[in-house]
Design a protein around this nucleic acid. Structure first.
Lengths: 161, 161
DNA sequence: CCAATTTACATGAAAAATCATATACATTGA
DNA sequence: TCAATGTATATGATTTTTCATGTAAATTGG
């Protein structure tokens, strides 16, 4: 078998790894009746409740209009709530509900267990290398898109004030 | 900013990296009128012409019925051809055409340049670490799904015989 | 050899995602 | 102040993708 371009092409390698392991976990999610898209939304809101819709969209890597629709479904399932901002009445902050939290909390434990099973395929040093390299790449991305800091500052200000 | 679960969650990190850099390149593709899905099909066929449809689907990480439809579109654009197998008349091998090759060849050069720009964000040792770690993860996947070897053996036998 | 099962691919209806654009609000600068 | 511009989200039509299933061919086991 000759070396193919694809097999050494970083974007393909990343897509393959992401796809393979995500699909593995999605099986577990579906078994509990949670779609991958809703999981992504919920886990992000669990981590950072009150996120504005557009920021949420950037975090979950979905288009804004798609997130609008997913959030509306989650609202109808009482798993999240929308609140329009007082400072800027165009903006909508999304909060995970008690029920939403009850749903995701055990899934996070499952996710951690699954992640451990994936990392177990690698040596301890490779485990660290992989995560740190991905963080390097991610940090540049976050810096480029200027989401996290701004959003979080507003969030903490509100909590403190 | 406290550490969020998500930001240290491997599946999210992989999805973020894959998404970010793929989207970057997809901009270039779209500028040339090629959709990401068709690029994936074409580049795989370029690497391994004559692949059977189901194997192709596994390689490009798309569902079989989706690949059937994408391939049919590509056939109508004269970029690929379908040939039913003589050994097994259920199977269809897909071949990239001259026109298809002409279309992808320069895109591969663009992809290589883009990949270099992504890797440039990392130190040389991290570049090697990342690729080798991803290969480790991928090799297990390929082994699990038993595609490549089988498929290629048949292909080379045909060429030799 | 043949019924039962499995495999490869196709198809059409249903669901999800995207795209273009609308609406409502906010900001900017003359 | 207010017109022009920009931003946040919503909406509906279109396109994509999935899901369930169909058809035809191959394989398997009696």
């Amino acid at each position: 078998m000759p070396e193919k371009f694809i097999d050494n092409y970083l974007l393909f390698q990343l897509a393959l790894a992401s796809h393979t392991f995500s699909e593995e976990f999605y099986q577990q999610l579906r078994a509990k009746g949670v779609s991958p898209a809703k999981w992504r939304i919920l886990i992000n809101l669990f981590d950072c409740p009150g996120m504005y819709l557009t920021s949420l969209a950037k975090y979950v890597l979905y288009e804004q209009s798609r997130v609008t629709k997913l959030v509306d479904q989650l609202v109808s399932e009482k798993l999240v709530e929308k609140k329009t901002s007082h400072q800027d009445r165009r903006r909508v902050s999304i909060h995970i509900t008690e029920a939403g939290t009850k749903l995701v909390a055990p899934l996070i434990e499952q996710a951690k267990a699954h992640e451990a099973s994936v990392l177990a395929k690698l040596s301890p040093s490779d485990q660290n290398n992989l995560k740190s390299i991905l963080k390097t790449l991610a940090s540049r991305h976050i810096k480029d898109t200027q989401i996290a800091e701004l959003e979080f500052d507003e969030f903490t200000k509100k909590q403190q004030g």
